[in-house]
Amino acid sequence: MKKSVFFGAFAATALVSGMALAGTLDDVKARGELICGSNTGLTGFGAPDASGNWTGFDVDLCRAIAAVVLGDATKVKFLPTTGETRFTALQSGEVDVLVRNSTWTYSRDTELALDFVAVNYYDGQGFMVKKDLGVSSAKELDGATVCIQTGTTTELNLADFFKQNNISYQPVTVQDDSEAQRQYLAGACDAYTTDASGLAASRATMPDAENHIILPEIISKEPLGPVVRHGDSQWADVVRWTYYALLIAEEKGITSANVNEVAASSTDEEVKRLLGVSGDMGAKLGIGNDAFKNAIAAVGNYGEIFARNIGEGTTINLARGLNALWTQGGLQYAPPFR
């Protein structure tokens, strides 16, 4: 039974606890499965559906990484992590990569010994108010009661914003998004503040969505992206370039539907290198040459992932905004693939 594992593990602890972690890439290959630290459930970004399949914007990036490393996008185990456990789960090696709406900040990057390898979603904190409040800018919220989740960076951002604009507010602290939505709808607070993507999802599911507006001010930068352990550059490269491959695919118009066709017919050298038709690019990273092709075939390019999970046309209905490609006025920019 598991008791043997228990005793064995304790006996072995003394012997091997000093050993450094082997390369994550080799670990994942040996295990035959990627363990991806995911959210405990965030609309549009990562949650299991009624039959237990994980779907979402972040989930698709995990699947892409699995497709790159193992050639199979289904070989992912999603380990739900909470706001408290996420970074420790990564540090202790319980997960290989964390794709869980984590904001890239200075102290997380340095003190926590983590590496944020890319930004897959540029978010920012916004406000939602009822239309009949007659407010069109966050600066008019003087004296308002604001619903805010405790223990998040949004709480600090809020304090900064109101202080800078020399206006006052009254916080109504809530525990999570569902409670916030409930309080806001019940009229316990005039405004609800959290990441703009979260506001959009909340608004989309309100019984009277047309009576609520999201104010234009975005008061903070929330670059969200995949995180890996510090000091394993090879693995960081794998995650980073998986993500860039999805961006390049969108830039070059490669989709999950036409990837095989493009691989066969394209004359673009960068595309040929990306899809493993020419050159020996995969080997430099310790993965197969057709690895990125597998990823694109499995989950599609960045634009497809965005459109499928959170983009315009879904209930959440987020515009690309900052997350458009650099060629379309956004911030998503991948270095050249050569």
């Binding site: 405990t40 949650a47 380990l79 739900p80 992590t81 456990t85 569902s178 909340s202 989309a204 599911t205």
Partner: peptide, 21 residues
């Protein structure tokens, strides 16, 4: 991060866009 019935499962149900709110 375990899926207890009260918070864990409730949270994933609420994360479904169909049942959010």
């Amino acid at each position: 991060g375990l899926m207890d019935p009260l918070k864990g499962v409730t949270q994933i149900v609420r994360a479904d866009i169909n049942w959010k709110g």
